[in-house]
C-alpha cells in the first residue's frame, strides 16, 4: 500500500458532507480500489507513515454484491482500529471476486505516544455508496460517520 499517484489521479479524495467525512476512491482495477479504500480510511484517521509493519491480521469478508462487499471490507478495516486498537499501514489481497475478499492487513497496535488520531471514524455507511467501473478503472464512494 505504498502511496502511488498515477498522473493526475490521486488514490482518493475527501469531499465535504454535513457532519461527516466523504471519501472518493480510485483504482486501476478492483483490487487496487479496495487497497486504496483501506489506505483512505487510515490516512484520514492518522499519519500512516508513522504506522510500522510489526504485526498482521488476516481477513475473510463476504458481501451480497460489490457494494455490500466494499462496505463490509471497510467495516472490517475500521473494526481493526475501533475494536482491537490496530492501525493498518498496508493491505494485500488474495482472493477477490464480487462476493468475497480475503487477505492480510499489516500494521501495529495504536500507541498514544507515537500515533495521533486526527479524526475518529465511528462507522462506514450505506449513504451515497457507490462501487463502479469507469473508463479509467474503478471508482468507489463512501460516507463515514465521524
Amino acid at each position: 500500500m505504498k502511496p502511488f499517484v498515477r498522473s493526475g489521479q490521486p488514490r482518493y479524495i475527501v469531499f465535504d458532507h454535513t457532519a461527516d467525512l466523504g471519501l472518493e476512491i480510485y483504482g486501476t482495477d478492483e483490487q487496487e480500489l479496495f487497497v486504496n479504500a483501506a489506505f483512505a480510511l487510515f490516512d484520514s484517521m492518522t499519519d500512516v507513515s508513522r504506522v510500522d509493519v510489526a504485526a498482521k491480521r488476516s481477513f475473510d469478508i463476504e458481501g451480497s454484491d460489490r457494494e455490500d462487499l466494499f462496505i463490509n471490507f471497510l467495516r472490517e478495516m475500521l473494526y481493526m482500529y475501533n475494536g482491537e486498537g490496530f492501525l493498518v499501514n498496508a493491505v494485500t489481497l488474495d482472493i477477490m471476486n464480487s462476493h468475497r475478499v480475503t487477505g492480510m492487513a499489516f500494521g501495529e497496535p495504536y500507541n498514544p505516544a507515537k500515533h495521533r488520531i486526527t479524526i475518529e471514524i465511528k462507522a462506514v455507511t450505506y449513504h451515497l455508496l457507490r462501487v463502479e467501473r469507469t473508463k479509467k478503472g474503478w471508482y468507489g464512494r463512501i460516507i463515514c460517520d465521524v
Binding site: 451480497s64 455490500d68 463490509n72 467495516r75 473494526y79 475501533n82 475494536g83 465511528k122 462507522a123 450505506y126 449513504h127 455508496l129 460517520d145
Partner: peptide
Amino acid sequence: YQICDDYLAHMVKKIDKLDFPLPDR
C-alpha cells in the same frame, strides 16, 4: 455504534426478502 452497525448489516443482507421496496438501503 457496533450494535447499530451489526444489525444494519444483518438487515441489509435480508433486504431482498422484505415484501416492500426501500427507497434507501
